[in-house]
Write a protein that binds this DNA or RNA. Structure first.
Length: 474
RNA sequence: GAGGCGCUAGCUCAGCUGGUAGAGCAUUUCCCUUUUAAGGAAAGGGUCCCGGGUUCGAGCCCCGGGCGCCUCACCA
């Protein structure tokens, strides 16, 4: 049971009133002929007299988001998926019976209206209703019109309300959708195949992260929610799918923050015969395209910064970056110290898109060693606004080397490092069948969308972010 | 996990030094045929997050708990 209040009681009474008059509060088959934006666009430049000369009738459907009544006339606004448009109601035009029906309508209800167009005294394009139907009677009130819904917790828990009353929220998710569409186009054009690999994996792999565990009853086996699709995607390259990409959810059993949600969306792609330098170039092209398609420009505003996605992006080795941004001599540092100092002192300074290359091999168990310096891997990460956005490298395709790396990981796992990788014998077998020279990359889509929508929290780009459940009273 | 801040009407918020719980919007009723935060008149609406404690008396003070946000830690 949900909690009741006088608002809901009053509106449930209205539902009963409708029923007692033989009107369904939840009817079907009410078809609009137009959308709000179609009408607003098409008649944008038409003056009042021109509109009133039109014989055309327009049927619209949407949610009433605004209502102002004057006794025998009223203005209301309805919102459909495209836009908002004003409706004018007049008793004389609508007739007594329909006007009585209108009196039953509250803000929040869905209605269907038909009528002609005109302009009000203030030149607002408005539909003059000649017919009106209730499409869905609603019983719970929406937040008030000025302040809307501010409470962050309620916004996340009741995203459906947030989407109705906070337009910028809808806009962010439209942008997110555009990003996904654009990146599919981008890889499609380049002959990449979109694939789907298991989210439930018997052996978690592909990233250093603590997995969620679940259980399959019939098989009586534990399964892990994937922390990355990487090892499966490379199996596909072994199988001859030379260019693959997957965009989908990864799950990591870690803390939650403005940068972390337990389930998040990752793009991973693999290209045979490419190397990590090719991928840096590809990444530059991709980000330029995504920024342009979502913001109309390669320059975007993010918090206090202006970020320019125009390529090329500076490339620094990790050691060069430490040298440039700190007072440390990178050659005198241990591998661990180097990485620590990089993370603590350098990352936050990488505001404009910057590639950092040559990561220590010890920290890159799936990456191919550099031919000149086996201590480092041919790997890069892309940082923007101090955040890691992408991670790519030449794939390690030497099965013996990979087996050694797995063994080191398993050792770490046994020492209590819950994020270390497991030994994946089948993956080694796949490498024995043969992975052509390949480079691969992962891009954190949520974090990228944060940048493109100027969102400070990952929760603002995930429709239903993970929250602790509240005590249910039901 | 630690610290800080917050939780009061459907929504947004006020509530002083502990003394009968408030406003705006919204709702209900009445008036109102071109409004743009429409206007006028009246009315109703509260588990002050939860549980203890102190007190003659707690929204306010103390203790414990819940949920959220932020910072840090953790986390590629």
């Amino acid at each position: 049971m949900t909690e009741e209040n006088t608002y809901i009681e009053q509106r449930k009474k209205k539902v009963e009133e409708l029923r007692s008059e033989g009107i369904s509060p939840y009817p079907q088959n009410l078809k609009p002929t137009h959308t709000a934006s179609e009408i607003l666009k098409k008649f944008d430049d038409k003056k009042g007299p021109e509109l009133e000369g039109l014989k055309e009738q327009f049927a619209l459907a949407g949610r009433v988001i605004f209502l102002r009544s004057f006794g025998k006339a009223a203005f209301l606004k309805i919102a459909d998926r495209t836009d908002k448009i004003q409706i004018y109601i007049e008793k004389q035009i609508l007739g007594d019976e329909q006007f009585k029906l209108f009196k039953n309508i509250d803000v929040g209800d869905f209605i269907w209206v038909q009528g002609s167009l005109f302009r009000t005294k203030t030149e607002e394009l408005t539909l003059k209703a000649t017919a009106l139907k209730i499409a869905t009677k609603t019983v719970r009130p929406l937040p008030e019109k000025w302040h809307g819904l501010q409470d962050i917790e309620t916004r996340y828990r009741q995203r459906y309300v947030d989407l109705i009353v906070n337009p910028e929220v809808k806009k962010a998710f439209l942008t997110r959708s555009k990003v996904l569409q654009a990146l599919r186009d981008f890889f499609g054009k380049r002959d990449f195949l979109e694939v789907e690999t298991p989210m439930m994996q018997p052996i978690p792999g592909g990233a250093a992260a603590k997995p969620f565990i679940t259980h399959h009853n019939k098989l009586d086996m534990d399964l892990y929610l994937r922390v990355a699709p990487e090892l499966y995607l490379k199996r596909l390259v072994v199988g001859g799918l030379e260019r693959v990409f997957e965009v989908g959810r990864n799950f990591r059993n870690e803390g939650i923050s403005t940068q972390h949600n337990p389930e998040f969306t990752m793009l991973e792609f693999y290209q045979a015969y490419a190397n990590y330098e090719d991928l840096m170039k590809l990444t530059e092209e991709l980000l330029e395209e995504l920024a342009t398609k979502t913001n109309g420009s390669t320059k975007i505003k993010y918090e206090d910064a202006e970020i320019n996605f125009k390529s090329p992006y500076p490339r620094l080795t990790m050691k060069e970056a430490v040298k440039k941004y700190t007072k440390q001599d990178p050659n005198k540092l241990s591998t661990e110290k180097l990485v620590n100092i990089f993370e603590e002192e350098v990352e936050s300074k990488l505001i404009q898109p910057t590639f950092i290359t040559q990561f220590p091999t010890d920290f890159s168990p799936l990456a191919r060693k550099n031919d000149q310096d086996p201590m480092v891997a041919d790997r890069f990460e892309l940082f923007i606004y101090g955040r890691e956005i992408a991670n790519g490298f030449n794939e390690l395709n030497d099965p013996e080397d990979q087996a050694e790396r797995f063994k080191a990981q398993v050792e770490a796992l046994h020492k209590g490092n819950e994020e270390a990788m497991h030994f994946d014998a089948d993956y080694i077998q796949a490498l024995e069948i043969g992975l052509p020279p390949t480079a691969g990359e992962g891009i954190g889509i949520d974090r990228l969308v944060m940048l493109l929508t100027n969102s400070s929290s990952i929760r603002d780009v995930i429709l239903f972010p993970q929250l602790r459940s509240k005590e249910e009273k039901s």
